[in-house]
Design a protein around this nucleic acid. Structure first.
Lengths: 165, 165
DNA sequence: GCATATCGTTGCTGACGGCAACCAAATCCG
DNA sequence: CGGATTTGGTTGCCGTCAGCAACGATATGC
């Protein structure tokens, strides 16, 4: 599986140091994103929880879908999803309708009110972030996205990862 | 606050799209990292918790330091740090010594055993990751770290962020 | 020497996900 | 057809984790 690169290069001190830097930043990122998502969530609805916000926004984008689909996408236990969804329904942000194709399933979609709030917030947020990133060209941003994607793939589970790379 | 860049460029569709990509990847990253860190933590010590692993490895690299420094670096409540540290000491991975310069503070450092285990695991891990990242040059990796750092700064709290940028 | 800030600990709470047991509907198969 | 198995979802329980607040102890400033 190893590439045609001498292992001495692979484990060079520079690489190790750089990888450690990435780890630290990822750690900070995780905690910071949690906070930011929390703010966004509250902007959509005062008692909207951070994790629920992500689910809500995904339902908004990927149309009506089942809870089990959410569980797959977010790699989160279906029990947890079930609770998040219930929470969102209680807040009037999600709506359930029976799946015509499967009596066990229900389809989830955002309510008009939720869609409106999401749009507003998303507009404000990207304006803010865009300004904050100031002179960062779009190319650099998508390079970051690309690097993250690659890094993510490298982190994939060792054993059972799809060869969809 | 806005830079000398026309706002039309700031909110260009490319930027918005790129930023959204970054968000998606960050979401995946968060969940995936949680798993990976958990594995690594267990490799160092069976009952080492994921969050503690990051702290341990930072102490390993940045020599003896105070709990408050950890709180700053990781942007985590000092109470939480205190508990993580206690956990690590219980496991015999961290050691406390009074700070000669400040009677209130204590300096933390890794025990020889922890250093040994960390080295082993880190060697295995970076071998794996290095292989997985294949032909990614060290420069690109540190560029990723740099981009992340910058992105992190952009996410900083709106109101009270240091102008240390 | 008293007020105040800093270092660290602890208790409480809430958010969150993994796990397992469970119900109901669907599907498989003899 | 009818029982076994699978799949969608809910719920209870528990472990991990961080924020907040209150506290004791030490250091520092006026």
């Amino acid at each position: 599986m190893s590439a045609a690169v001498p292992s001495s290069t692979l484990a060079s001190p520079e690489r190790v140091a750089a990888l450690h830097e990435v780890e630290v930043e990822v750690g900070v990122l995780i905690r910071r994103v949690r906070r930011v998502i929390g703010e966004r969530a509250r902007a959509v609805h005062p008692s909207l929880l951070p994790a629920s916000y992500l689910i809500l926004s995904h339902v908004r984008e990927r149309g009506p879908l089942r809870a089990s689909a959410l569980s797959l996408v977010f790699e989160i236990d279906k029990g947890a999803i079930s609770r998040q969804v219930q929470h969102l329904i209680d807040l009037g942000l999600l709506a359930r309708e029976p799946d015509p194709e499967d009596g066990r399933a229900t389809l989830l979609s955002v309510t008009p009110a939720a869609a409106r709030r999401l749009d507003e917030v998303s507009r404000e947020r990207s304006a803010l972030l865009a300004e904050r990133l100031g002179d960062w060209p779009a190319d650099d941003i998508s390079m970051l996205a690309g690097s993250l994607r690659r890094y993510n793939r490298a982190l994939e589970d060792d054993g059972d990862r799809d060869p969809r790379c």
